[in-house]
Amino acid sequence: MRTCLPRRQFLTTLIVLVVVMALSLFLRLDFANAKLILTELRIPRLILAIGIGGALALSGSVMQTVLGNPLAEPYTLGVASGAALGAAVFSSLGLHFSLAGINAGGMIGSVAVVWALFKISSGRGHSSESLILTGVMLSLTCASMLAIWMALADPLGVQSINFWLLGDLSRVSLVPAIVILVLSLTVLGYFIYFARRLDAFLMGIDGVPSFGVSLDMTLRASVLLLSVLIGFCVSAAGVIGFLGLIIPHVVRRKLGTSIHSRVLPMVYVWGAIVLIISDTLARVVSDPHELPVGAVTALVGAPMFILIYRRQRHEVDQ
């Protein structure tokens, strides 16, 4: 079966990644303090951008597949809202527990949402519809609680909460950045290994068993694994939107296929590239002030998505 990665396209993408990485590291660099700035600030930030960009795009791609919904994204099931709420509450209360330098409040929030998600939707056999509906409700609940928390918090606390809502890569050190990079690459490896099981979802959720693949087991394992990954990402850098929604669509379109062994590695690398570019823009556009990276990805991503969606509809209608 022709499931190998398109080498030429992948190599070109890797070259783009290297160029973008170099730009991110050396653009507007104060060469007098280059060593300090690079080792303490820019290299950890770059590693985090690669890990989180790749993780979000990968999560979006797999979520869209296993939920059978092209509009799904990493945050569809409410994990991000749970993580943001947990992290914001912990941060406002001055509780600074961490796991490898990553906010433990975010992890607790995301785990709580996954637990609630499976508990509430289990009566219906974890169908994608019940997972999505439950996830959206949990997400709204967490978002409302976060809004109430913001209304009650002091102005300094609100500033801190904004970080979780808009995303920021500037507050991380080297160890958590490496942890997230390694974790996201491990999850990528897992999904490439089981790529053919994901392919069975391409012909619609109802058709999965006809390819000899267990729908329930694959769905649960994928959601659980991605939720842990997303929990780590949100805990480290807040909610960064649109990457997970858009990158998979662009890559599938560019490659002309949805077969996962070809799509997932490209999705990961393009997620990293786009987040590095967005973060560099957020850093330099209004220097010395930084823009929230989540706002930059959303600002670029929303019009792009509308454009892609309109083109796809047009092609299908033809």
Binding site: Q64, G68, P70, L202, M203, G204, D206, R252, T257, S258
Partner: peptide, 8 residues
């Protein structure tokens, strides 16, 4: 069957 994605 309903396929939400492009598959040849």
């Amino acid at each position: 069957f309903q396929s939400p994605f492009h598959v040849s």
